[in-house]
Simulated scan of single mutants.
Amino acid sequence: MSQLRVAVFASGQGTNFQALADAVRDQKLDVTIELLVCDKPSAPVIERARLAGVDTFVFKPKDYPSREAYESEIVAELERRGVELIVLAGYMRIVTSALVEPFYGRMINIHPSLLPAFPGVNGIGQAFEYGVKLTGVTVHYVDGGLDSGPIIAQRTVEVAQDDTEASLAERIHATEQTLLPWVVAQIAAGRVALDGRRVTIG
């Protein structure tokens, strides 16, 4: 059985990309990372990809007339490389049907809250300001809505009384970096089934 061909989309530091690349390097994750897609030419994740030997597709959204225009170009590149799974790992752009439709059920996102609570930007800050006692991390399929796709897996993170937003964020990011490689490994092993909004892992 051939290895699952994965593309990672990221916009910033790339710590979740690094977690995936490290898991592949350490033979804990049996996939190939075919491509990093990044919308910010100065993002640190690009250097992480270079050091990991992963090709990059870097673009500036303002160079295109629409989101659909650059997403169509990305889809063509993904199809050319035979990519089977897209992992949105800190990709800070809304995706359109141009990307979602050809990859529905084959595109996942990681979000730093227990969805459906606190979707959108700054999920950690939203949860902290709200005063929740329990938050966490969600990996879900992408359906074109705002963090609204079927949930694959979640991990909880307790909010301590003496937490700051920064200390909470540190634990949430550490949780992301273990949960995301685990989910990708389950998908690569064929253990994840999607039926409507229900996802089973077995």
Rank of each mutant, 00 (worst) to 15 (best):
M1V: 14
M1T: 14
S2K: 15
Q3E: 15
L4S: 13
R5I: 13
V6R: 01
V8H: 10
F9V: 07
A10N: 04
S11G: 11
S11N: 07
S11V: 04
G14L: 02
F17P: 12
F17N: 03
Q18M: 04
Q18S: 12
Q18A: 11
L20F: 03
L20D: 10
D22W: 01
V24G: 11
D26R: 01
V31A: 12
T32W: 10
I33S: 12
E34K: 10
E34N: 13
L35A: 10
L35E: 05
L35P: 05
V37R: 05
C38V: 06
C38W: 00
K40W: 00
S42T: 15
A43I: 07
P44T: 08
V45T: 06
A49T: 10
V54P: 05
V54W: 06
D55L: 09
T56L: 07
F57A: 14
V58K: 03
K62S: 13
Y64N: 09
P65Y: 03
R67Y: 13
Y70T: 12
Y70C: 10
Y70R: 03
Y70P: 09
S72L: 04
S72D: 12
A76F: 00
A76S: 13
E77F: 03
E77D: 13
L78I: 14
R80F: 08
R81T: 14
R81D: 12
G82S: 11
V83N: 12
I86N: 13
G90P: 09
M92P: 11
M92Q: 01
R93S: 11
S97G: 12
L99E: 09
E101A: 14
P102M: 10
F103N: 12
Y104P: 00
Y104G: 00
G105L: 10
G105K: 00
I108K: 02
I108Q: 04
I108T: 07
I110D: 05
L114G: 12
L115S: 10
P116L: 00
P116K: 01
P116F: 01
P119H: 02
N122I: 00
G123D: 00
I124P: 09
G125P: 10
G125W: 01
G125T: 10
A127M: 06
G131I: 09
L134W: 03
L134R: 13
L134K: 13
T135D: 06
V142I: 14
D143A: 05
G144V: 01
G144Q: 07
G145R: 04
L146D: 07
D147R: 00
S148Q: 06
G149V: 08
I151D: 08
I152N: 08
R155F: 03
T156A: 15
V157W: 01
V157A: 05
E158L: 15
V159K: 02
A160K: 13
A160S: 12
D162A: 05
D162Q: 08
D163F: 03
D163Y: 02
T164H: 05
E165R: 02
L168S: 08
A169P: 09
R171M: 04
R171W: 01
I172A: 07
I172Q: 03
A174N: 05
T178V: 15
P181D: 07
W182P: 09
V184P: 14
V184Q: 02
V184K: 02
V184W: 02
A185G: 15
A185E: 11
Q186L: 00
A188S: 14
A189M: 00
V192P: 15
L194T: 08
D195H: 10
R197H: 12
R198G: 06
R198L: 13
V199E: 10
T200R: 02
I201Y: 01
G202V: 09
G202D: 15
